[in-house]
Design a protein around this nucleic acid. Structure first.
Lengths: 140, 140
DNA sequence: TTGGAATATTAGCCAGGCTAAGTTAGTCTG
DNA sequence: CAGACTAACTTAGCCTGGCTAATATTCCAA
């Protein structure tokens, strides 16, 4: 009813605050942290190089190095090399990493589904309609 | 068109990932961190006690103690006492803290407004309609 | 009046950011 | 083709922001 950008921005801020707190509660104490989960997700389609991962996660390269170190120690990913360029290190899922990714994703979707089941059909439709709009934000 | 909870959950996950990354980019390098901003926001209506703040931010008490220490050192909040109970410490905004809060909030809303202006009127309406639904999530 | 509960703080740990500096490998130029 | 620059990554050292466990203090109730 009131698509004035400034007023809407205030409302979005409020809801965002709610969602951020919700996420924090949801994420605490999982078998992988949400950052690790995100990185594992990036590897699902195959090996990636460090720079790609860092860029995709909006993080500096050294930060990603540390993340991958931890995932490697945990046996969830393995480093490799690029035969065409000896400078680049590749990273890929181990089978254990793939299993873990699947399990965590399943748990997340289950939890979210439960939340969404508590909504009415109409509310879900409203939410579904808004998703493409949310996906557009920040692409500017 | 497809408000099946499980399928919707998958889509929500994807969008959530996008929004989290967007937030991270947006928040980096601000004059106060987003946590500090959140705490300052909690103090806007007046003094609060430590336990209240910790609960509201879904954080353990020691974590809040450290946060408040930093904000106090920065001169943005001041600790006080409750005359009725000597165990409790209260926290309130200094005038500098209030100014800072206002400025950061203004900057955030401006940035968000700019994002939202790039959408069509219809997209904004769709988004506005979904906000109450998003606000309901996690209240289960 | 004493013992347990409530409120905070301190100390010490870990994850996850950052920059600066170092290493190794590719590339380009004179 | 040698030397310099660039690119890809890692290491080191710092900060924020979580956590638990241990400590003061203060309150309250038996």
């Amino acid at each position: 009813m009131s698509p004035d950008p400034t007023e809407l921005a205030g409302q979005v801020s409020t809801v965002l605050r709610h969602l951020v707190l919700l996420l924090r509660r949801t994420v605490a104490g999982q078998p992988v942290t949400s950052q690790q989960y995100g990185v594992l997700g990036s590897l699902e389609q195959g090996a990636r190089r460090m720079t790609e991962l860092a860029e995709e996660h909006a993080v500096q390269l050294p930060t990603m190095t540390v993340q991958i170190n931890r995932l490697e120690e945990a046996g969830l990913v393995a480093r490799g090399t690029d035969p065409a360029d000896a400078r680049v290190r590749t990273v890929e899922l181990t089978s254990e990493g793939r299993d873990r990714l699947r399990a965590v994703r399943q748990a997340r979707i289950t939890r979210l589904s439960r939340e969404l089941s508590a909504l009415t059909e109409e509310e879900r439709a409203t939410l579904a309609a808004a998703l493409p709009v949310l996906a557009k934000l920040g692409r500017t």
